[in-house]
Design a protein around this nucleic acid. Structure first.
Length: 803
DNA sequence: CGCGGTCTATGGGGG
DNA sequence: ATAGACCGCG
């Protein structure tokens, strides 16, 4: 077999500026600017040279800065060319930020570094080497919905749902296996042939693997696992990358799973003499081999929160054993948060036994107390958040420096309703994901079919979208023909006339085939945006949506138009970008990538998405039993410790202000249930929290001690600080009313308000308008309510009437 | 084949 | 509450 050596593969060792493998600590020192402002530990982490380095970086300890300067230092001292550096980050956004910061330090020299996520790096490698795996470079990347769709088909074929298989549990199990690098064949070796369940699963796994292969597709887990398999099956391919990447850096190492760990191991493996080109100028050892690349990993086992997708905390805990002669550097000084916030974080995480002691500290002072609030309902809680955000904004805090966290995505609903009403600009990161909407998946399926005609799954999705009279029967006929002749479904389309179908259907199929073929032919020379627009026109997709009466279709049209805008934006950022590049980028966006600091909006996100981010003010909502810790987690080994780490991650995101809120009742899917304060809340020393409304006050409405707190029977509910944090705790005049927000979107038409008008609000009662800003449907009234105080309301939809 | 109704499973985190 | 599966009818 032969390997195409493109530019980067031209053995970078031949122009290597320095040599690797110098004695630890003896590297040339980069200039002072690079070390400016670093503490001794950080400095050491930047300067240390050796085979492997573990930087244990507590939250907010400046690890991004350290990592960035370490990379910049390698380049500046000419120890490495940029092209010899591979840095793995957790999100694309973090990668972009790191690239920028390195560029700021060393200038344009940073060109050629690989800074990307595990998935992006693997896709890059796999596309280059697709042929060695028997695929084409335009393979499709299946997301979890695509995987499940394929599994669903297989379950149907096998009638396997009777054995208790669902697309969900099958895809979960397959994902887990792949993260352990177990493929269908290695799984088959350990199958108990007497267990029909296992035998059936093996068959499903085999068909799933075959289905992906036939469609020239890989799922998310394959991206990592197949790269490892590729490296192991073709050592000479692995050697290409081992020779190229002399410095490998991995961020958030505590969240790597076994497959990712193995990938790193492969990349930093020493190169055997037979894989060293004769003319290499890299320094070779006594046997003629080349030592492995130097490895730097950064992580914090206290922030490991991805066990559910296979993250193995042992990867970081056992790093020193895995990589002998490792250096370990501990970063404990925190540059992000106030001491009060850190004290709370330290107190919480210290309840996790089995961890290395680590105590974050800062020199910035104690700062404000943590604010606590207990709402009567989730809406009440949301109103508190909205009001506090309004206050912060009035005090000069930018919306983009404020974030609201929650454990589950469904919690956004109440928050969004109140935010809209209160006219607070917000953005939900990774919510109901844009790319998961049906109309977007449809449009994307067209593009995928154009790029990868073998993808039958994509073809089936769009065969009858928009409706063109190709139903299940016709699809089956085409599939049958394709199977008989041994071609893909796409290749069967032009032969539709031979199937004896009706003239109308036949014509529709041929027209459909013509649209796809035309697009495929034009793809190499046409921008993704133009391909998409052409397809939308030719298929009449938008027209079909326009023709219906469904009011939601208007939003769907907007979404498709948004996708067109995305493709145009892509073309601006990547003038040379191909359709496959576009599809890859879209497949790999992470929730945190959507963060836009210049948007001027408050960011809403899950605690998981929040990892690695920081904000001046953080609202951590829903701090309740069954939510944080989540109900399901309590049954899982290590679940409660992981949930505690999640809470810890949330707390440590805050720079200046931290708000912890919960609700006494929370309505989920129709019915309302009583919520208990989270056990983790009690782990925070009482004197750190100032309760605006403590759980006790909320239960008793200003009366005696909380029943809810004693409910858990921990005996330590005194720590809630009721009575200490709020002197005298008078039964406060209720300014936050129990909101029962209706689901139907309210519309006040063109109700206009002027300063001085009296209005009545369904929750806040009567009040006087003190100001009106904004135009038309976006106009906002500022109202001074007689009892609830000052609020801002979006006039068009607020539940108000003019008196 | 397409439509519109009823029924049922599913409500955790993500690349 | 909601999306998708399912079923019977025009």
């Amino acid at each position: 077999m032969t390997f195409v050596l493109d530019a980067f593969d031209a053995d970078p060792g031949t122009r290597q500026p320095g040599s690797h493998g110098t004695a630890p600590g003896s590297a040339p020192v980069p200039d002072d600017a690079l070390l400016e402002g670093l503490n001794p530990q950080q400095r050491e982490a930047v300067l240390y040279r050796g085979p492997s380095l573990l930087i244990v970086a507590g939250a907010g300890s400046g690890k991004t800065s350290v990592l960035t300067r370490r990379v910049a230092g390698l380049i500046q001292t000419r120890e490495a060319w940029p092209s010899q550096i591979l840095a793995i980050t957790f999100t694309n956004k973090a990668a972009a930020e790191m690239r920028e910061r390195v560029q700021a330090l060393v200038g344009g020299a940073a060109e050629g570094m690989w800074i990307s996520t595990f998935h992006s790096a693997c896709v890059r490698i796999l596309r280059r080497q697709a042929e060695s795996m028997g695929m084409t470079q335009s393979f499709t990347i299946y997301d979890s919905a695509d995987s499940r769709a394929l599994i669903k088909r297989i379950l149907k074929e096998l009638d396997a749902d009777t054995l208790g298989f669902t697309p969900g549990n099958v895809s979960g199990k397959i994902s887990k296996l792949k993260n352990e690098l177990t493929d269908a064949e290695s799984y088959s070796r350990n199958v108990n042939a007497d267990d029909p369940q296992e035998v059936a699963f093996l068959e499903i796994f085999r068909r799933y693997t075959a289905g992906l292969r036939r469609a020239n597709a890989l799922d998310f887990d394959d991206l990592i696992a197949e790269t490892v398999h590729l490296f192991r099956a073709f050592p000479e391919v692995a050697a290409l990358y081992q020779r190229r990447f002399r410095h490998v850096l991995v961020d958030e190492y505590q969240d790597t799973n076994h497959a990712q760990y193995s990938l790193i191991r492969e990349l930093v493996r020493p190169i055997k003499p037979q894989h060293v080109p004769e003319d290499t100028r890299m320094s070779v050892d006594a046997n003629g081999g080349i030592p492995g690349a130097s490895l730097t990993v950064v992580g914090d086992s206290d922030q490991s929160i991805y066990a559910f997708r296979g993250a193995d905390i042992r990867n970081i805990v056992e790093f020193e054993r895995d990589f002998p002669n490792s250096k370990v550097i501990l970063l404990e000084q925190n540059y992000r948060s106030t001491q009060n916030i850190l004290d709370a974080a330290n107190a919480v995480i210290s309840n996790n036994f089995d961890r290395k002691a680590k105590n974050l500290f800062t020199t910035v002072g104690s700062g404000d107390k943590i604010i606590g609030y207990t709402g009567y309902t989730g809406h009440d809680e949301a109103q508190f958040v909205a009001d506090e955000i309004a206050t912060l904004h009035e005090q000069g805090e930018r919306y983009s420096d404020i974030a609201v966290f929650y454990r589950t995505n469904s919690q956004t609903r109440a928050l969004e309703e109140i935010f809209i009403r209160s006219a607070i600009p917000y953005r939900v990161l990774g919510g109901t994901k844009f790319y998961e909407r049906a109309e977007i998946k449809d449009a994307m399926a067209y593009l995928i079919q154009v790029a990868n005609p073998a993808d039958d799954l994509a073809l089936r999705r769009i065969m009858n979208v928009p409706k063109r009279g190709i139903g299940p029967a016709t699809e089956a006929a085409l599939q049958g023909y394709a199977d008989r002749v041994g071609v893909t479904l796409r290749d069967a389309l032009p032969d539709a006339a031979q199937l004896g179908l009706g003239p109308k259907v036949t014509a529709a199929i041929l027209e459909f085939a013509a649209i796809l073929d035309e697009a495929t032919d034009s793809a190499p020379t046409t921008k993704p945006a133009d391909i998409l627009v052409k397809i939308l026109e030719r298929t009449g997709y938008i027209d079909a949506l326009r023709a219906t009466r469904d009011p939601q279709d208007e939003a769907r049209i907007e979404n498709v138009e948004e996708l067109v805008a995305v493709t145009k934006e892509f073309a601006r950022n990547n003038p040379e970008g191909t359709l496959v590049d576009f599809l890859t980028e879209v497949s790999l966006v992470a929730a945190a990538d959507e963060l836009d600091d210049s948007s001027g909006t408050v960011s809403l996100m899950t605690l998981h998405t929040a990892k690695g981010l920081e904000f001046d003010a953080v609202f951590l909502t829903g701090v309740e039993e069954d939510l944080l810790p989540h109900r399901i987690s309590s049954g899982e080994p290590g679940g409660l410790a992981e949930e505690r780490r999640l809470f810890y991650v949330g707390i440590t995101r805050a720079r200046k202000r931290l708000y912890l809120s919960l609700a006494m009742t929370r309505s989920t899917f129709g019915d309302t249930s009583v919520a208990m304060p989270s056990r983790y809340l009690q782990e925070i020393p009482a004197e750190l929290i100032e309760w605006r409304q403590s759980p006790g006050m909320a239960t008793s409405r200003g009366g005696t001690r909380s029943r809810a707190l004693n409910g858990r029977g921990t005996g330590s509910s005194e720590r809630f600080g009721y009575g200490t944090a709020l002197p005298a705790a008078p039964p406060r005049v209720k300014t936050e009313w129990t909101n029962t927000v209706t689901n139907k979107v309210r519309d006040n038409g063109d109700l206009t308000l002027a300063v001085g008008d009296r209005i009545r609000h369904s929750d806040f009662g009567e009040g006087r308008v003190t100001g009106v800003t904004g135009e038309g449907s976006k106009s906002i009234a500022e109202v001074l309510f007689d009892q609830a105080g000052r609020k801002r309301l979006l006039i068009k939809i607020a539940p108000i009437e003019k008196l």
